[in-house]
Computed example of a mutant assay.
Amino acid sequence: MKKKVLVIENDEEIKQIVTYILELEGYAVLGARYSSSALIKLKADLILLDEWVNNREGHMLCKEIKAIEALQSVPVVIFSTAPDIADIAKNCRADGFVHKPFDVDTLIGVIKKLLPLPAAA
């Protein structure tokens, strides 16, 4: 079974590019509007979260996710153009961050570090 990455991204083009990249790497990509009940039902293995989502700051959503017992063990990666993204990620207890515009190898490296794929048989 493929590992599932939930991509919460406002920009549809970026979301499509990230989806394509992650699917090529062997991940299943989920997309959803944010709600805690939806996130719990999706059972994502990792959440890639834009820093600006539906007129809300992504780091606030990250704090909400980390406060939900059923989601506390799910790694969250903040995805942003903010120059202080490392501090933002640390303050909201995100497990990682990726600067936009992103380098494909960096994006894949951060995700694979937090969500390794099973070895090919």
Rank of each mutant, 00 (worst) to 15 (best):
K41V: 08
E51N: 15
G58P: 07
A86L: 06
V76T: 04
L30T: 04
L46G: 11
K63L: 13
F79P: 13
I40N: 07
I47R: 05
A44Q: 09
D105A: 14
K100E: 08
E25M: 07
I88R: 09
E9M: 04
D11M: 07
P118Y: 09
N91L: 02
I111A: 05
E12Q: 14
I14V: 14
L39K: 11
A67E: 12
A28H: 09
A38Q: 11
D105N: 14
N54A: 13
K112S: 15
A94N: 03
V29Q: 07
T81M: 12
A120K: 15
E12Y: 03
L115C: 15
V29T: 10
A67T: 08
A28F: 02
A86D: 13
L117E: 12
D95S: 13
V18E: 07
W52S: 10
A89P: 00
L39I: 11
D105V: 10
L30E: 14
L48C: 10
V110S: 07
F97I: 06
D95N: 15
S37L: 03
E13W: 04
I85P: 01
I85A: 01
E64C: 01
P83M: 06
D11W: 02
G96E: 06
L71K: 02
L48R: 04
S80W: 00
N10L: 01
D103T: 03
K113N: 14
L48A: 10
F97A: 04
